[in-house]
């Protein structure tokens, strides 16, 4: 049921009852469907979007462009597998264009991230080169604005 997914994509904290009422369905049907979507790994998890900059927790995120020499018979898969096992790797994508793998790394400091690239990522067999870009500021993530506080607008009360 695509509509359940669209609802959850916008708000992962909706309850089964809320979804049932929104969709004009009953709770049993929604929870059965949810279970099925989870079992089939269509829904992979439920997480919060956090702006760590507003906390005392230091977090640094970097995007590493990785060029890979494809391995005979294995393409990029083997290299990707070696990389995504590191828990520092938050996301990993195979890309079209000027480089092959986009690695999103999370660390506590720039130094930590840079060291990880130098000592763990670059030496992976098949990795031809890396280029590290640090994220300086998040404006928007997963459709949600990070940087701006909404300005209060003077409003009229009309019928």
């Amino acid at each position: 049921m695509e509509s359940i997914l669209k609802l959850l994509e916008k708000d992962g904290r909706l309850t089964v009852k809320q979804m049932a009422d929104l969709l004009g369905s009953d709770e049993k049907a929604v929870s059965d469907k949810l279970k099925q979507l989870e079992d089939e790994h269509v829904i992979l998890g439920y997480k919060a979007l956090i702006d760590w900059d507003k906390t005392d927790n230091e977090v640094v995120t970097a995007i590493i462009e990785v060029r890979v020499t494809p391995q005979r018979g294995e393409g990029f898969e083997k290299v990707a597998e070696r990389i995504y096992q590191f828990e520092e790797v938050e996301s990993l994508y195979l890309m079209s264009g000027g480089f092959d793998l986009a690695v999103f790394l999370v660390g506590r400091t720039m130094r930590e991230v840079a060291l990880f690239v130098a000592t763990k990522l670059a030496p992976v067999e098949g990795v031809a080169s890396t280029a590290t870009h640090f994220i300086l500021k998040k404006y928007k993530e997963s459709g949600v604005l990070f940087a701006t506080e909404p300005e209060q607008q003077e409003r009229g009360y009309l019928l």
């Binding site: 009422d21 929104l22 969709l23």
Partner: peptide
Amino acid sequence: GQRRRYIITR
């Protein structure tokens, strides 16, 4: 449409 169903039910 979804919110309409929701509020009517409630």
